[in-house]
């Protein structure tokens, strides 16, 4: 079992960037396709397994050691506080966390301190909490699971914290980003026990991926 490597890959936009990277790093990527309904892809001869799952579940698979290593966005990692090792910044899948206000409010003045005790809708309550705590602003955080931009339009919240890649969704919903919280990219993560027990298997993969992405620029 020590020679078997299991890699967790996220469905969705990170998947397409992850495959060529793994291929370049010399890993067998045959039969890896998001459309296939297979969730586990085995390469017996190469002693390699892939798990394909929802991005938010990747840290869980890795934390329990069900997967040895995984690829996942920093945006997912920060919200979960899992006990995992974060090894390499893969430089793709860039997005930024922003605070956004309705255009009308933004025009009147962008100072967030005027938003004490207001409501903020977000998929990322931990990020929101630590951001506002640092600013010394007390807010009521409303956790939603999707379409955050809807919340201000119908009066559920006064502002939102969300991840943005192009900014189009914000614009379409008459929202303006008023503050960047931080930038996130995809990360190579590892289970802390696998990293030690399967070091001989994992370390070369990590080294190759690290050298492949070393001189890459983050694509915005």
């Amino acid at each position: 079992m020590k020679d078997m490597l299991t890699i967790a890959l996220p469905k969705g936009k990170l998947f397409e960037d992850a495959i060529p990277l793994l291929q370049e790093a010399g890993l067998c990527t045959k039969n890896l396709s998001e459309d296939s309904r297979k969730l586990v892809i085995r390469h017996e001869k190469e002693r390699l397994n892939y798990i394909i799952c929802r991005p938010t579940d990747i840290p869980t698979f890795v934390e329990y050691g069900a997967a040895d290593i995984g690829i996942v966005g920093k945006d997912t990692i920060v919200e979960q506080d899992k006990d995992i090792m974060e090894l390499v910044d893969l430089k793709f899948g860039h997005c930024r966390f922003v605070v956004a206000l309705p255009e009308t409010a933004a025009k009147k003045g962008r100072d967030l301190t005027q938003f004490n005790h207001r409501r903020v809708a977000t998929k990322f309550p931990k990020v929101a909490e630590s951001f506002f705590a640092e600013k010394g602003i007390q807010v009521e955080i409303i956790k939603l699971h999707g379409n955050i931009e809807l919340a201000p339009a119908v009066g559920l919240a006064d502002m939102i914290i969300d991840i943005v890649s192009t900014g189009r969704t914000l614009k379409e919903n008459n929202l303006v980003a008023v503050e960047d919280i931080f930038h996130a990219t995809a990360r190579l993560i590892a289970n802390r026990v696998s990293y030690r027990l399967k070091h001989q298997r994992i370390q070369p993969v990590v080294e190759r991926i690290r050298s492949l992405v070393k001189d890459r620029e983050v694509t915005y």
């Binding site: 079992m1 890795v62 289970n191 026990v193 027990l197």
Partner: peptide, 11 residues
């Protein structure tokens, strides 16, 4: 030091 065993994701 920490001890690990195969198949368990924590020490």
């Amino acid at each position: 030091f920490e001890g690990y065993t195969v198949g368990l994701g924590f020490p």
